[in-house]
Design a binder for these strands. Structure first.
Length: 690
DNA sequence: GCATCCCATGTACCT
DNA sequence: ACAGGTACATGGGATGCG
């Protein structure tokens, strides 16, 4: 039976024990115990203080040893510190005592979670890893990490997804999905919760995805049993966890749960080096901090408390205010045969190329940021290569894409937090240096393109739009390769547009807008940025309409066709869609506007549509999240509360048709403006001016 | 008293 | 608690007009 092969499902610390859950390849679960004692490092103010601390801490029941540790990034010099190991129930008190003690100059490894200390220094295996374990009598003897880097499918964790919970008075409704089967429970709260607990017991999921509400899982004052081990349950439930299953919450590091899937979560978890539950909840700063701490601790560093690191900064750089990325203003109107060239992972590439890190210089070869990023950057490139060999739409390819986008997000965040005050290692100088190098790169790219007779059509940070009469796809690819070779930064052709249009500002028709364009590629794909069809707060009906309109107008072979048949067909299409709205029988879901509530309802200054819609729900005692969908029912009413209804309360046929006709005409107008034509909504005529 | 202007407010997008 | 740069709708007070 031993050793057992499986995946590391979850780890948590409970007093003096670490509890480890393994999901075996046979589909069993295994709960193993390992010993753990919390520790931290103390820097005494001097030798006398060291003696004092040694005595006091030992008296208090701690185990204390002298150790040499590195504490400064960029220096291999070691400091003499005391390693203090304390019984778990005393740890917090001792930490507080040390924080106030006059014998202490600094504390290290002190603000890590127990589970981080355990994973970084004892287990040294990232959760979700493929592992082989040996155990005896429920105690872990050894854990060996198996190589599964080429595995694209995520580990075979079983998931139960709770999609919606609605509570009205004592009644409850719940939608759940387990093993591909949808279940719907409704009735009294007790009945629903009891059935839910039965479903959990039956399906025996490893992962439960749901939005937690603290008071919801009690029947007759008793907590429902949802975990796999009642011994751990009581203690864990206080922290909102469930023994042996990972509760993921409906938000994945700021994104909705289904957006990335488990494959992406696995990348995120392994990078962060924490259990999946934390990896889903944590935002980038914490994930990256966690990985930084692991890398440093593995190399003999002790981690200073938050906000400890500071770096010298010259007066000059303080005077010169930093700027972000460069944009080149486009010429608005329609262009033919344009290519967009992108630097691949520009910020990570710059960091690697320049060996940029937080520490200004280093007397050993170790530099934190490149060390942390390098393997993940290579992994992402490897996955990108894999993706090309996989069939479109195949599960393997989707897993691959999920992993790629998760890693992209982690890598880009490295740049974002480099100068961030909440990053304990952050250094503004590093951040500005990355910005400077980024500006330099795109400006050089522009020069290189121009020297090969290409015209710069547009540029934004790391993407450059160029054109040359008669240029073929290969010519653009060659240009990208030339720029890559000359700058030392990878660059590739992103899109080859048959037609591409840039918009003028709505407020000033003679000035081009940035970050807004739409076009069609040589293979007939509509590509758009910034316009209505990209916005989540535009009704789905309008977005779909606009995308179809672009295809209808631009999917032609000549400019003449676009301005002739294309525009005429477009007008007809607009008219038929206006009729559909006017008919009054579009489903309200297709007209719903989704908007995030960025503040508490009471904090709003204006009666904005999203506030009023949310207030209506909240007035009925309904729970409101940070997102609201609403429908215009009487958009021009003087009473803000008459204007919109939350989607939940909207009825089919009850929408404000005039309002939606206006939105549709706006969306159509965007496209016609982009083609250099004025769009007259009354007479439905075109007035060409370009 | 009413229409219109203006801008702080608020949200979302691009890379 | 990931940055900086950008566009634009809108609610409602300020302003101007009759």
């Amino acid at each position: 039976m031993n050793p057992v092969n499986g995946w590391l499902l979850d780890v948590y610390v409970d007093g003096e024990r670490a509890v480890i859950w393994i999901r075996t390849i046979e589909g069993e679960t295994l709960r193993l115990i390992d010993s753990y004692r919390p520790f931290l490092y103390v820097e005494p103010v001097d030798r006398a203080a060291e003696q004092e601390l040694l005595y006091m801490l030992t008296e208090a029941g701690c185990t204390v040893e002298v150790e040499a540790k590195s504490t400064t990034l960029g220096s291999s010099a070691r400091k003499r510190l005391l390693r203090v190991e304390a019984p778990p129930h005393l740890f917090k008190g001792i930490l507080n005592g040390l924080r106030r003690s006059r014998f202490v100059r600094g504390l290290y490894d002190s603000d890590l979670l127990d589970v981080q200390r355990y994973l970084f220094t004892r287990l040294k295996v990232e959760p979700t890893s493929r592992v082989s374990v040996e155990y005896h009598d429920g105690r872990l003897l050894s854990m060996r990490k198996l190589d599964d880097h080429a595995e694209l499918a995520p580990p075979q964790f079983r998931a139960l997804v709770v999609k919606g919970i609605n509570v009205e008075g004592r009644d409850m409704e719940m939608d759940a999905r387990a093993a591909g089967v949808e279940k719907r429970f409704s009735g009294s709260m007790e009945a629903v919760l009891t059935s839910f607990a039965e479903l959990v017991a039956d399906a025996d999921p490893d992962l439960i995805v749901f939005k937690r509400r603290k008071d919801e899982f009690k029947v007759d004052g008793q907590l429902l049993k949802l975990g796999r081990c009642s011994a751990d349950d009581a203690q864990l439930r206080a922290q909102g966890s469930i023994a042996g299953r990972v509760v993921l919450g409906s938000v994945f590091y700021g994104f909705s749960a289904d957006e990335w899937g488990t494959a992406g979560l696995v990348e995120r978890t392994r990078f962060s080096f924490v259990p999946m539950g934390l990896a889903t909840r944590w935002l980038s700063n914490k994930s990256i901090d966690s990985r930084n701490c692991f890398e440093l601790m593995s190399r003999g560093y002790a981690i200073p408390e938050e906000g400890y690191f500071e770096y010298a900064r010259s007066l000059m750089s303080l005077v010169e205010r930093d700027r972000g990325g460069v944009t080149f203003t486009p010429l608005h109107g329609l262009h033919e045969n344009v290519a967009s060239l992108d630097f691949d992972s520009q910020y990570p590439s710059l960091i690697m190329k320049g060996g940029l890190s937080y520490e200004p210089e280093s007397d050993d070869l170790f530099r934190l940021i490149p060390t942390v990023m390098g393997p993940w950057l290579s992994r992402r490139l490897w996955l990108k290569g894999m993706k090309r060999s996989l069939q479109r739409g195949s599960p393997e390819r989707i897993y691959c894409e999920e992993r790629i986008s998760t890693l992209k997000y982690i890598l880009v965040s490295q740049y974002g937090i480099a100068g961030c005050a909440s990053n304990r290692f952050g250094n503004m100088v590093t951040f500005e240096e990355i910005n400077r190098m980024s500006r330099e790169a795109i400006i050089r790219a522009k020069g290189i393109a121009e020297s090969h007779d290409f015209t710069i059509v547009y540029g934004d940070v790391d993407s450059l739009f160029v054109r040359r009469d008669g240029a073929k796809r290969e010519d653009y690819e060659t240009l990208a390769a030339t720029i890559a070779a000359e700058t030392g930064l990878p660059m590739s052709l992103d899109n080859h547009f048959r037609f591409l249009s840039f918009l003028p500002l709505k407020s000033d028709e003679s000035t081009s807008a940035l970050k807004k364009y739409f076009g069609i590629t040589t293979d007939g794909e509509v590509v758009a940025r910034g316009i209505e069809l990209r916005r989540s707060d535009v009704p789905p009906f309008i977005r779909k309409f606009q995308e179809e309109l672009v295809a209808l107008i631009l999917d032609r072979s000549t400019l003449g066709d676009i301005y002739g048949a294309g525009m005429r067909d477009g007008l007809r299409f607009i008219e038929s869609n206006l009729k559909m709205i006017g008919g009054g029988d579009l489903p309200v879901e297709s007209l719903a506007i989704k908007r995030r509530l960025k503040k508490r309802l009471s904090a709003y200054v204006h009666n904005t549509a999203q506030r009023v819609a949310a207030a209506q729900l909240s007035g009925l005692g309904r729970e409101i999240g940070d997102e609201i969908s609403f429908v215009y029912v009487n958009g021009d009413s003087a009473d803000p509360y008459e204007r919109v209804k939350p989607l939940e309360l909207a009825e089919n046929g009850g929408y404000d048709a005039d309002r939606y006709k206006m939105l549709l005409l706006e969306a159509a107008g965007t496209i016609y403006r982009g083609l250099g034509t004025k769009f007259d909504s009354k007479g439905m005529t075109l007035d060409e001016f370009g």
